[in-house]
Simulated assay, not measured.
Amino acid sequence: MDIHQILKKLPHRYPILLVDRVLAVEPGKAIKALKNVTINEPFFVGHFPHRPVMPGVLMLEAMAQTAALLAFAEDAAAPGSDKVIYFAGIDGARFKRPVEPGDQLVMDVELIRHKAGIYKFKGTARVGEDIACEAELMCTMRSIA
């Protein structure tokens, strides 16, 4: 899935859209996506001026957006409809490696369970072979109309 397809599925836009490409998706099971991290990211101006590091909360957001794409892949009615995915919880978040300009953050997210519009995912974000961040994410799909 390229950026044009992602923009059709996610409501996020600059500066908060944090998924550049979907590399693989198996609806109802798992997804792999990437975020190219460049020095042009607006958060690097203040985090930190002399040692730019991607904020951990944005790594979690990138995984959550990847999880939303997986949820939308399972729910064919969602893209372009009146549905949106909201964060409902984060458990076991761990940050193991800083993410810097020039890195490519690859998110692997698997669906643990889905019931009544509530989704639970296990996410891992890597740079190369190194784990940068991991967490369990809970989201809910809701109608905005």
Rank of each mutant, 00 (worst) to 15 (best):
V84G: 09
A30Y: 03
E100K: 11
G56R: 09
G92A: 01
F95V: 02
K96W: 04
N40Y: 02
H47V: 12
R113C: 04
P42F: 14
D91Y: 15
A62F: 15
V53C: 10
P49I: 13
P15E: 05
A88S: 05
V57R: 09
V57C: 14
R126T: 01
E74S: 12
E41D: 06
D82G: 10
M63D: 11
R126E: 03
A30P: 04
A73N: 11
P52G: 10
L23A: 06
A78F: 15
V53R: 12
L18F: 13
A93N: 11
I118Y: 14
A125C: 09
G80N: 08
F95P: 06
D20M: 05
A30D: 01
E61Q: 15
L34G: 04
R113Y: 14
H47A: 11
V53N: 13
A64W: 14
D20A: 00
L111W: 08
A68N: 12
L34H: 09
R94I: 00
I31V: 01
I31P: 00
G46P: 03
A73P: 06
G117S: 07
V99F: 12
V45C: 08
F44I: 15
V84T: 09
A62K: 09
V84P: 05
F44E: 08
E100Q: 10
D103V: 02
G80S: 09
D103P: 00
K115L: 11
A71S: 13
G28W: 04
A64D: 11
G123I: 03
P101L: 04
A64L: 11
D91S: 09
F121E: 00
S81C: 13
G56T: 06
P52N: 03
V99A: 00
F87H: 14
E74H: 01
Y86D: 02
G56C: 10
Y86C: 07
P42S: 14
A116I: 05
E61I: 08
R51N: 15
G80P: 04
L70T: 00
I90M: 05
K35P: 03
E110H: 12
P42K: 12
K115Q: 08
G92C: 04
H114F: 15
E26S: 06
V45N: 06
M63W: 15
G56Y: 12
N40M: 00
G80R: 07
I112M: 13
V37W: 12
K122S: 06
R97W: 02
R97I: 05
Y14S: 12
P101I: 03
A77V: 10
Q65C: 13
M59T: 07
Y14F: 05
R97A: 07
P79K: 08
Q104A: 00
F43C: 12
D82N: 11
V53S: 11
P27N: 04
H114W: 13
P55D: 13
E100A: 02
E110K: 15
T66P: 11
F43A: 09
P98H: 11
V19E: 04
A30L: 02
S81K: 12
L70I: 00
T38L: 03
V84R: 10
S81I: 14
F44Y: 13
A24C: 03
F48Q: 05
L23S: 07
T124A: 10
Y86M: 01
A30V: 02
N40H: 00
G56M: 09
I85V: 02
P49C: 08
P15Q: 01
A77F: 13
Q104E: 07
G28P: 03
